[in-house]
Design a binder for these strands. Structure first.
Lengths: 182, 182
DNA sequence: AGATTGATGTAGCGTCCGCTACAAGAGGAA
DNA sequence: TTCCTCTTGTAGCGGACGCTACATCAATCT
């Protein structure tokens, strides 16, 4: 049985799985290497240094996030903004999304602090989500661009409030917006 | 000249200043101690262990955040939701707020990940901000409670988008909400 | 006075960190 | 064959980490 060749491309999926589970903050070379079935020595060999590894990893995670959004596209568009929001909230409640969200706040924090690679990855992921959301807007919506950005702002605010235990505040905020019906 | 006595109370302000500048992620005992004019040995002596130190520090930061909000209360309430939002955005653009915001995303990330003390501090800070916002709602507002939560959700979403370089998306989202006029 | 307690310094433990030096094997090129 | 390059293993460097052992000194209490 030949051992699979190791390269950036074969390593990144396993590294991504590890940070999705354990976060970016405490991600150090030796645990990452163990999760990827190799050694810290080889991670440095393939990526040059840890900073590049993390930047590449963030780029890869942005890519698989895009792919997940593509896969989530339903066959037909919602007919109202309310329906659109309901779909998105349902999407965000999927269990696979939970790990992603925890990692997401790591990325936002790194972006706000200016860590190399974080802002680019976060920006790309949001841009992708915005494009996806625009594609999900009702066909007869009077202002799909503004509407998508409005919903985006609301959704991200609700997610943040939920992350700090203010699910109720988020829920009432969405209700008061008129975009959510119980 | 007698040296100032060291205690949790005298240490916390200096520790808070340090994490406001350097973040929570890389906060380790020796740099924290240097910033507070003492030794790692004494930090452990006063707080027991690092986890308790961070939890106490987060609580203290939540307190000074509350005090900052109190100080920001204007003499008279705004008369419309638009004016209310404009005030809050102006508040958030103050330079002192910038360091706070960077730290805030650290706290949100820790809260999402379940680190001890983070969720409590984040929840308290959001609760305080929500109360402040309710007090800022126009006196004749038809639904101050729901309106405050709605604006809160929008504002936090806009802050997050700004943190990842999507200031334009946030701006257009707020414009599309009708709560912001240029 | 003698004993007790609290606050602090010095030194160091064991562990993890990112990274490197060095050697060795495998496979292709001359 | 003889190189040479790519890939990998082993070992370890210097430093930071959280934390502890131990001693000291001043203040307080009996």
């Amino acid at each position: 049985m030949p051992t699979a060749p190791l390269s950036r491309e074969t390593l990144l999926p396993r590294l991504a799985a590890h940070v999705l589970e354990h976060g970016l903050g405490g991600a150090s070379l030796r645990p990452l290497a163990r999760a990827a079935g190799t050694s810290d020595r080889m991670l440095i060999y393939h990526f040059g240094n840890k900073e590049t590894l993390i930047a590449d990893l963030l780029g890869y995670i942005a890519d698989i996030y895009s792919a997940a959004l593509d896969a989530a596209l339903g066959p037909q568009r919602p007919q109202t903004r309310q329906e659109c929001l309901a779909r998105i909230l349902a999407e965000g409640r999927k269990p696979a999304m939970a790990a992603f969200l925890v990692l997401w706040w790591d990325i936002v924090a790194g972006s706000a602090r200016g860590l190399p690679g974080y802002r680019e990855a976060a920006h790309a992921m949001m841009a992708r989500q915005l494009a996806w959301l625009e594609g999900q807007m009702p066909e007869d919506d009077p202002d799909p661009s503004g509407g998508a950005r409005y919903m985006m702002t609301l959704i991200e605010g609700a997610l943040m409030l939920s992350a700090v235990g203010h699910e109720d505040t988020a829920l009432q905020g969405l209700l008061a917006s008129g975009l959510l019906r119980l």
